[in-house]
Amino acid sequence: MPTEPTMLQNSTLDFLGNLARNNNREWFNTNKTAYLAAKEDVEAFTAALIREASRFDPLLADLLPKNCLFRIYRDTRFSKDKTPYKTHMGLWLCPSGRNSNGPGYYLHITPGASFLAGGYWMPPADDLKAIRQEIDYNSTALKQLLEANSFRKYFGGLDEEHALKTAPQGYPKDHPEIALLKLKSFTVSHPFKDMVLTTPKAARTVAAGWAALAPLNQFLRSATDVASQQF
C-alpha cells in the first residue's frame, strides 16, 4: 500500500502565489483544476502529518485529513476586504475536530510566510478560568515546559497579543505569575521557509515543531478536562 506524500509540491505554493495576484472569481474558476490539485496535495500531506503527530499525541490518530483542512473561500459578509478567497491553506489537528476551539496544532501554508502554530486560541470563559486556576495552583509545571530546550528551540515564549492590560478578576496585580494570568490565549508559532515544506522530510520537520508544543497542549487539556468534570 503506498504511503502518503511527506512533502508539499512546489505547484501548490505556485497556485497560492498566483491566487494572491489574481484574487477574483473569474481567475479562480478558470484555474479550478489547479486549485483542486493543490487541495488534494495538502490533504495528502495532512495524512502524513497526522501519522507523524500521532506518535506523540495518540488522540489525533483517528482524524480524517479532509476534516482538518479549512475552506479557501472567505466569508466577506462583515469584512471591508471583499476578496473572495484566502491566499493561504490552513489545517488544524485537534482531537475534537477542525471546528473545535480546544488545544491543537495548526499549519499555515502561503508563499513566503508559512508557519506552524498551536495551543489554545481565545478559550471560552469557563476554560479560560480553569487554565488560570491551574496556573495559580501549578505554575511550576507550565514554566518548566515553557523553559524546556525542546520548546525554546522553536518558540520564544507564549504569544502575548491578547493579554489583558490589568489583572484578571480574582487575582491581585502583584501575583507572581501575573504575566501568565493576563493572557487570553495560550498559543505559540514558528515560521518556515518555503523550501522546508517542499523537501522529503517536511512532514517530520513540521511534526517536530508540534512535538515541542505538545506538552503545552497537554497542560491546557488537563486544566480544561478537570474543569469539565466539575459540571
Rank of each mutant, 00 (worst) to 15 (best):
residue 2 P to G: 06
residue 8 L to M: 04
residue 14 D to S: 11
residue 16 L to W: 01
residue 22 N to W: 07
residue 23 N to L: 09
residue 28 F to Q: 06
residue 30 T to L: 13
residue 32 K to C: 02
residue 36 L to E: 15
residue 38 A to C: 10
residue 39 K to L: 10
residue 43 E to A: 13
residue 52 E to Q: 13
residue 63 L to D: 02
residue 63 L to C: 04
residue 66 K to P: 06
residue 72 I to A: 03
residue 74 R to T: 04
residue 76 T to P: 07
residue 81 D to P: 00
residue 85 Y to C: 03
residue 86 K to I: 08
residue 87 T to G: 05
residue 89 M to S: 04
residue 89 M to N: 04
residue 91 L to N: 02
residue 95 P to Y: 03
residue 98 R to H: 09
residue 102 G to T: 09
residue 104 G to D: 03
residue 109 I to Q: 01
residue 109 I to H: 02
residue 114 S to D: 00
residue 117 A to K: 02
residue 122 M to H: 13
residue 123 P to A: 08
residue 128 L to A: 03
residue 137 Y to G: 10
residue 140 T to L: 14
residue 141 A to N: 06
residue 142 L to G: 00
residue 143 K to A: 06
residue 144 Q to L: 08
residue 148 A to Q: 11
residue 149 N to D: 15
residue 149 N to M: 09
residue 151 F to Y: 14
residue 157 G to S: 11
residue 158 L to A: 05
residue 159 D to R: 14
residue 160 E to P: 07
residue 164 L to F: 10
residue 165 K to L: 15
residue 168 P to G: 10
residue 176 P to D: 14
residue 180 L to H: 06
residue 181 L to A: 05
residue 183 L to V: 09
residue 184 K to A: 08
residue 185 S to L: 11
residue 187 T to C: 12
residue 190 H to S: 13
residue 208 A to I: 01
residue 208 A to W: 00
residue 211 A to H: 12
residue 212 A to K: 00
residue 213 L to F: 12
residue 216 L to R: 02
residue 216 L to M: 10
residue 218 Q to E: 14
residue 220 L to D: 00
residue 221 R to M: 10
